[in-house]
């Protein structure tokens, strides 16, 4: 028991690691601020394209979405940060992370929006068009607001996944929360900093997880 406390919940080490961890946490938040809005926006573009009436838009997007849903996010990230330099494209770890997240998240958010758009009957669009709204206006003012409401639980739980995924940035040496924790671990030979990182993630995400399950339950009944 004492061993467990010493190895996983070592207060001295946690206090020592605190400043580094705090900076790492700041970087994680920074990543989130860039990656979540860009994914939400990219997803919207993907959804509009994949519900387009024109087949030559719909098909390529569907193929791309499936590709990015099939590749593990870590493989994509490594491809971009370690593979592209061979082709002469050198990106900073931050840019590499943002780019790979944009590709991956747009595919996922896009699928969610699409399901939402498809859940709205054509009657809504027809009604909007009959009052003279353009197809785009009908989408923005009539379809999307309802669609987003219908898939809100999925959007929230996907956003939780995105925040968790930012931990992958540690693998390409971007100094976010988990990277900082792992640095502290390798210096102290003690797992407490990683437990501490876990606590940070819990503080950030537990409320979101609660919210997500509440939303899921509310919509399913």
């Amino acid at each position: 028991m004492e061993q467990i406390l010493f190895q996983f919940f070592n207060l001295d080490i946690m206090i020592q690691a605190w400043p580094i961890m705090l900076r790492g946490f700041g970087m994680t938040l920074l990543l989130c601020i860039v990656v979540i809005p860009s994914g939400l926006l990219g997803g919207l573009v993907v959804a509009l394209a994949s519900t387009s009436e024109k087949r030559w838009i719909r098909w390529p997007v569907a193929v791309l979405v499936d590709i990015f849903r099939a590749i593990p996010p870590l493989a994509l990230l490594i491809m971009i940060s370690a593979g592209l330099p061979f082709a002469g494209i050198r990106l900073s770890p931050f840019t590499a992370v943002c780019l790979s997240f944009l590709l991956n998240n747009s595919a996922y958010y896009g699928e969610i929006y699409r399901a939402g758009i498809e859940s709205i009957g054509t009657g809504q669009d027809e009604a909007a068009r009959s009052t003279g709204l353009t197809g785009f206006q009908s989408m923005v003012y009539v379809i999307l607001p309802q669609a987003v409401r219908n898939v809100l639980p999925d959007l929230v739980s996907n956003t939780i996944e995105v925040v968790k995924l930012t931990s992958l940035a540690s693998v390409v040496a971007f100094a976010e929360l988990l990277y900082s924790a792992d640095m502290a671990r390798s210096v102290t030979y003690n797992a407490s900093p990683i437990v501490m990182a876990a606590c940070f993630y819990l503080v950030l995400l537990w409320p979101a997880v609660r919210l997500a399950s509440r939303l899921e339950r509310k919509l399913s009944t």
Binding site: Q7, F8, S157, I160, K164, L165, T166, S167, L168, S170, V171, L178, A181, D182, R185, A191, I194, V195, A197, A198, Y201, L202, L205, W206, A208, V209, A212
Partner: peptide, 15 residues
Amino acid sequence: RALPPLVLILILYFG
């Protein structure tokens, strides 16, 4: 649901 799997992996593997 709240913890990144990589965090759990590191805790178990190195702890």
